[in-house]
Design a protein around this nucleic acid. Structure first.
Lengths: 331, 331
DNA sequence: TTGAAAGCGCTAACAG
DNA sequence: CTGTTAGCGCTTTCAA
């Protein structure tokens, strides 16, 4: 398994150039030599060395993906789509876990640069200037997944968070709810936090419903615990609410759990709608109604865009992916 | 960012050999030249080309990880540990999603071989002869994660499934339960299916409790749906049970959900214990008692073992990781 | 302490 | 149709 092109050439009585041509499906050899060479390759079990190829072709057929968090199920869904699309293009994917840590991120970027990867997918986090500048210098294409940059011209794929939040709230309103609260994620999160709050507020005002500050709970993050604390606070400061829009499924499940503890019946006493439609949404009791993002497709799309950029050398258009309410039994 | 060692050498008025020595922390240069070269490197932002290095050093500082499934949360946990340990060693990890598909797996193995990765972690699936033979030919070390081979001498890291299942059942017995059922995963799964059933049976008989065929539900897999169907079947064929040991948390959550639907109160009417202690275990209502595997640590351990094999050229001992009952409120 | 030169495995002109 | 040769960017003898 450690035969080189030389071994093949020698054994087949041809030059290495000929072997190279045949291996790369080029032209310039007779059917006969092709057969002979292919036989030898088969016999030796020769596998071209991608490292050597990468050195000369300046293409490693490898892309890098940066994730701020590894917990949570968003990651696997994204990764699944990314990996699928990459594999279809004959490329591999290197995963990097940045922990939202600037220093770590830069080290990863440097590592990816040394490895001469062909492109980068940057996910779920704001693209800092430092990152952008570095990647720009690397001269490899990049696409943003589930995030976007308001300042740099980098193509992204994500859903429209404001719009999705609007839809969720609107859905609650259509079901007859008027006193609708929101347990938001981090409101300082310019990508996933603020827009969802805005969507909620827009939907309320567009429907002539009052927006009460007491009805909006700002959490630190999008986690389960934020949901349980959020619902508790909500019940204290706004006991009259009949429905809540949670900024993530984890928050929703947390709220569900707290409601159960408090003896509040869902959906009879209180309706809850989540956001993300993770697999846990269908596992909760009652099953959670949620606004779905097509996570795997988003990963796939981002990867395809990346490959298009690699091939054309041009940038591509960003994609807003469709969201969709998945009705289950929590509303 | 595309400067080469030559550029550095020229600008610093030294030979490329000297630059190489300095970059690699070797000896054989004056403090003065070192300073000069380092300055130039800094100025140019020179990054050594890992591809060229890989070609000559025969080490790519990249490992490959094969996962049969990408859904589920086991993956992220494992990956998180693997990625952490690999990163500490200055290596990257390429993820491969085999879908338990033999053909796909072989293609991945081939790809990894062409890329000349330094080692392989093979997870959660039985190591087929074909895979083993190929990897052996690749001459790279491999370790098994959350699986083991009864026929090939490949080091693995996993918990003792039989023992863990025994512990879970024993725990139920200690809590005073006698009529204990099990909703198993796939009983033909020689790694994660059968051993857990055996552990359950052993614990029952060791405690003088009868093992009733009706008390064992064999599912197709370890998924949520298997749990809901499992509990339903169980209630039909063995209504008297007071506790159930589920072969996975997803099954347990499914059972929990069905119980809720059926008006069975957990833990009052029925106790349920899960297996894996995934993050969903603490999100259920009531929170699920579960036997925990240290997933991230297992990934980390497997990776460390892999690196040890790479360094020493020798095989290493397999590791049985400790399991542990996490008490919550479903028992 | 330094440099020249060979070569890792491969591709791509350039000849023939 | 086929072979020779010059690198890709780097490490590593071998001399100086």
């Amino acid at each position: 398994m450690e035969y080189t092109i030389k071994d093949v050439a020698k054994k087949a009585n041809v030059s290495i150039a000929t072997v190279s041509r045949i291996v790369n499906n080029q032209t310039g050899f007779s059917e006969k030599t092709k057969r002979k060479v292919l036989d030898v390759i088969e016999e030796l079990g020769y596998q071209p060395n991608a490292v050597a190829r990468g050195l000369i072709n300046k293409r490693t057929h490898t892309i890098g993906v940066l994730f701020p968090k590894f917990s949570g199920m968003l990651v696997t869904e994204f990764l699944s789509g990314i990996e699928k699309a990459a594999n279809e293009q004959g490329s591999s994917v290197i995963v990097c876990h940045t922990e939202s840590n600037g220093e770590k991120t830069m080290k990863y970027l440097q590592l990816l640069n040394e490895k001469r990867i062909d492109g980068i997918i940057f996910t779920s986090e704001v693209l800092k200037d430092e990152y952008y500048q570095y990647i720009k210098k690397m001269k490899v294409p990049m696409v943003l997944l589930s995030t976007e940059s308001y300042v740099y011209p980098v193509p992204y794929v994500k859903v429209n968070d404001r719009h999705a939040a609007y839809t969720a709230t609107q859905y609650l309103i259509q079901k007859g709810h008027k006193k609708i609260a929101m347990i938001s994620g981090n409101k300082d999160d310019i990508i996933a936090g603020k827009p969802r709050i805005d969507g909620y507020i827009n939907a309320m005002t567009d429907n002539g419903l009052p927006v009460n500050d007491k009805y909006i709970i700002n959490s630190k993050s999008f986690a389960f615990q934020d949901g349980v604390e959020g619902l508790e606070a909500l019940m204290r400061q706004a006991p009259g609410v009949t429905a809540v829009f949670a900024a993530s499924d984890e928050i929703a499940i947390g709220a569900l759990s707290k409601a159960y503890q408090l003896g509040i019946k869902v959906p009879d006493d209180l309706s809850i709608i989540g956001y993300d439609n993770l697999s846990i949404a269908e596992m909760s009791a009652p099953p959670l109604t949620s606004v779905a993002q097509p996570l795997a497709e988003m990963g796939e799309m981002a990867t395809k865009m990346l490959f298009e950029m690699m091939e054309t050398g041009q940038s591509v258009e960003s994609r807003i992916m469709p969201h969709q309410i998945i009705e289950r039994n929590s509303v």
